[in-house]
Design a protein around this nucleic acid. Structure first.
Length: 422
RNA sequence: GUGGAUAUGGUGAAGCGGUUAACACACCGGAUUGUGGCUCCGGCAUUCGUGGGUUCAAGUCCCACUAUCCACCCCA
């Protein structure tokens, strides 16, 4: 049996790799327009960072982390998400000394040990952005605006933005009491997971997908019902900002995200038609996180977008991506002398920005033509003994199917004038 | 962690107990010596995910394992 890639990983090749490049370019473009700087943090971190940052009660920490001991007996974890690392870097590099709010974005692989299915991988890729040091609802609005704008530019349709506020620690404790009171009598009817959640993290009972739990929680007090005045005000201001710029959203009082650090604003963007895993973007506010991992009290908000799922939506909606098909040149040389000349010429042309292929396998002319055809080459430069003798090169236009003799000295100018992607 | 489906050449696939494992595409070679895409001709799985079992006989039935896909939980 040949060695194959680990479960839940993928080789990104060919046309797909071009799509990734396209997306990455769009991401960098929009981030710079919104004033975000790139941050590159390690792919692995101390396990404790995620335990404290993401939260002990989360599925991520409980069952999905790639954790191992290194040779120094340190517990290391491949990052399952980006926010904790960014906050760690913020504290460690004292970025709070810079102009606030600090706006950072990242792009890269994340790792979660899960069973795979459509849209779920063990190594997947996220584009994420974080704003640290800004509490104003305008910050939240701008973050959501970036996401919205990004999807618009990609030409995606029919996406739903779900919005909720899960409150701050103050109103959360009130909510917890009300929720537990409400569910106390029916506790026994809850699913096994929710029985545990009842004590550890009752809020997450709200978004349990179990049908029985859902019916039990249909009239349950939501976090929106128990928001304190400040949180209420924050949430309504955010909404009015969103309305002003025409962002459509749905209030979803049961949207409770699976990461412990969220406070106040929580949101998800959902897409149809890509399988059961339909969240292509998720995020929220995490005002307590920086302090939690040992930094100064700093408000923060961010999101993460799943690249694979984004690509899946793009494919599903048949969005045409402009995969620059550049016009290439192939030098078809016949004989040793011609190969030497051709090799020399290839360097000169490339130095002028002309993409050049050469036959490297010593094929005959016929097969070089075939190779050129398969590689989508526009111009084949044929050099053989006859051409060497006359100091010319035959330039064959593969698209038009005609060819002409061009003096060797003017070949560069000729190509520069005729290739339209230079 | 749990459940379901699937596993035949580079790819898509026929075959569902009985002599040489269809077919298509791709690939390779050829059709007057130096010209691609179209056409024609030829080549291309001693073998059916792995291991075991049933049988006179197994790609075809049974069991286990592994992998893939989808789904549950949760999420990107």
């Amino acid at each position: 049996m040949i060695i194959q890639r680990p479960k839940g990983t993928q080789d990104i090749i060919g046309k797909t790799a071009l799509k990734w490049q396209y997306l990455e370019n769009e991401i960098r473009k929009i981030c710079s327009e919104y004033g975000y700087q790139e941050i590159r943090t390690p792919i692995f971190e101390a396990t404790e960072l995620f335990q404290r940052g993401v939260g002990e009660t989360t599925d991520i920490v409980n069952k999905e982390m790639y954790t191992f001991l290194d040779k120094g007996q340190r517990s290391i974890t491949l990052r399952p998400e980006g926010t904790a690392s960014v906050c760690r870097a913020y504290v460690e590099n004292k970025l709070y000394a810079q102009a606030q709010p600090l706006k950072l974005y990242y792009l890269g692989p994340m790792f979660r040990y899960e069973n795979t299915q459509a849209g779920r991988f063990r190594q997947f890729h996220q584009f994420g952005a974080e704003v640290l040091g800004g509490e104003d609802p305008l910050v939240d609005a701008e973050v959501i605006h970036l996401i919205w704008e990004f999807f618009q530019r990609l030409g995606l349709k029919g996406l739903e933005v779900h919005l909720n506020s899960v409150g701050c620690p103050n109103c959360r404790s009130e909510h917890r009491i009300q929720l537990q009171n409400y569910l106390q009598r029916r506790k026994a009817d809850l699913c096994e997971d929710c029985q545990t959640r009842f004590e550890r993290n009752p809020m997450r009972i709200l978004d349990c997908k179990n049908k029985r739990c859902q019916s039990l929680t249909s009239g349950v007090p939501t976090t929106l019902d128990t928001l304190c005045n400040d949180c209420q005000e924050h949430f309504s201001q955010l909404q009015s900002y969103l309305k002003i710029v025409g962002i459509q959203y749905k209030i979803n009082p049961k949207l409770v995200r699976g990461l412990d650090y969220y406070q106040r604003t929580a949101f998800e963007v959902l897409a149809e038609g890509i399988g059961a895993q339909n969240a292509i973007c998720g995020g929220g506010r995490y005002d307590g996180l920086v302090k939690e991992i040992g930094g100064p009290p700093t408000p923060g908000i961010g999101f993460a977008m799943g690249m694979e799922r984004l690509l899946a939506v793009l494919d599903m909606q048949k969005v045409e991506i402009d995969l620059e098909t550049e016009e290439k040149v192939l030098i078809a040389a016949l004989g040793d002398k011609a190969r030497q000349e051709g090799f020399k010429l290839s360097g000169e042309l490339r130095r002028n920005g002309i993409p050049v292929l050469m036959d490297l396998l010593g094929r005959g002319l016929k097969n070089q033509m075939k190779y050129a055809d398969r590689e989508g080459v526009r111009y084949v430069l044929i050099i053989g003994d006859e051409e060497l003798a006359k100091d010319i090169i035959i330039v064959r236009d593969m698209k038009l199917g005609d060819q002409k003799e061009v003096p060797k000295e003017t070949i560069k100018q000729y190509l520069l004038q005729n290739i339209n992607n230079i």
